[in-house]
Amino acid sequence: MSGSLFASADGPWAEGLSAGTVLLHGWACAGEIALCAAVEAVLRQSPLRGMVTPGGQRMSVTTASCGDWGWVSDRRGYRYSAVDPDSGQPWPAMPDPLRELARGAAAEAGFAGFDPDACLINCYLPGARMGLHQDKDERDFKAPIVSVSLGLPAVFLLGGLRRADPSARILLQHGDVLVWGGPDRMRFHGVQPVKPGCHPLLGERRINLTFRKAR
Rank of each mutant, 00 (worst) to 15 (best):
T21H: 00
P47T: 07
K142E: 14
V146R: 06
P126W: 11
R79M: 03
L24I: 10
D10S: 14
S65T: 09
A102H: 09
A102I: 05
R49G: 08
A30G: 15
V61P: 00
L201Y: 12
V148G: 02
G190Q: 04
S147L: 11
G11I: 10
G67V: 05
R79K: 05
K136H: 12
D84W: 02
E100D: 14
P200I: 14
G88R: 02
L150Y: 09
L120K: 00
F114I: 12
S149G: 11
A107P: 11
R205S: 12
A164M: 10
P166G: 05
S87E: 03
V191R: 01
V177N: 01
G181N: 10
L132N: 10
D135I: 12
H174K: 03
G151T: 12
W71Q: 02
A112H: 08
P92S: 10
A128H: 13
W71M: 05
S18F: 01
M130P: 09
G70C: 08
P85T: 04
R206Q: 08
W91R: 00
F188A: 01
A143F: 05
A64V: 03
R212D: 07
L98F: 02
P95L: 06
G113D: 04
L98M: 08
V83M: 03
F188T: 08
P47I: 06
D115W: 12
S60T: 15
C36T: 15
G181W: 03
Y78R: 04
H199V: 08
S8K: 13
G20C: 04
F6R: 14
A34V: 11
T62C: 06
C123H: 03
D68Y: 03
I33R: 14
T62A: 08
Q45D: 10
C66R: 02
L171P: 06
A118L: 07
A112E: 10
H199D: 14
D117K: 14
A82W: 06
